[in-house]
């Protein structure tokens, strides 16, 4: 509960970076980072599914409003939320939920977090690019864009996570 202002601050900060900085950054239109998904990735472990979906959906809508693509990012974030639920169910045992508040780099370790970030970014970007094109033609190009963008996003996630890295209080 006491961490809610932190999440709000993170949301505003990430969306701000996304909209006013990263919107103008691209690598030959092949690699576009979408760092705002870090907000969804870092939501608490114990959040009810409904709130997870609602927050992901709302986050996507916020981006959409600024990008003039109403529904596109919301859709990708919904897929991302499902992916997050499945990934956490598969990799986290229930007892570790007691000790850690959220799946961050500092709490879960680099190996787990890198896999988590990469898979989630890939899932989100793939959905996003497919529905942006709205066709499966030139799927190879979409896949290339997805992979390059996912690595770019992962890199930015690592940078931000390292900036806010906190040593485990053990």
């Amino acid at each position: 509960m006491e961490r809610i202002p932190l999440h709000i601050a993170r949301f505003i900060g990430l969306v701000f970076i996304q909209l006013f900085l990263l919107k103008n950054i691209g690598f030959y239109n092949l690699s576009t980072p979408y760092i705002y998904i870090l907000f969804i990735l870092l939501l608490p472990f114990k959040i009810p599914n409904f709130f997870l979906y609602a927050l992901a959906f709302g986050c996507g809508i916020t981006i959409d409003v600024f990008h003039d693509t109403l529904g596109l990012h919301a859709l990708a974030c919904t897929v991302l939320a499902l992916g997050r639920i499945l990934f956490l169910n598969l990799t986290i045992s229930n007892d570790s939920l007691e000790t850690e508040p959220e799946p961050s780099l500092s709490s879960m370790g680099a190996r787990w977090f890198l896999l988590y970030g990469l898979l989630m970014a890939f899932l989100h970007h793939l959905t996003l690019f497919i529905f942006e094109l709205f066709s499966l033609s030139n799927f190879g190009g979409t896949l290339l864009r997805t992979i390059l963008s996912a690595f770019f996003t992962l890199f930015l996630m690592l940078v931000i996570s390292l900036v806010f890295y906190r040593k485990k209080a053990r």
């Binding site: 609602a54 529904g71 919301a74 859709l75 939320a81």
Partner: peptide, 15 residues
Amino acid sequence: LFFIFFASSFILLIN
């Protein structure tokens, strides 16, 4: 929940 949110965002996207 996934299907509910997916459907609503898809409708938004199409419309």
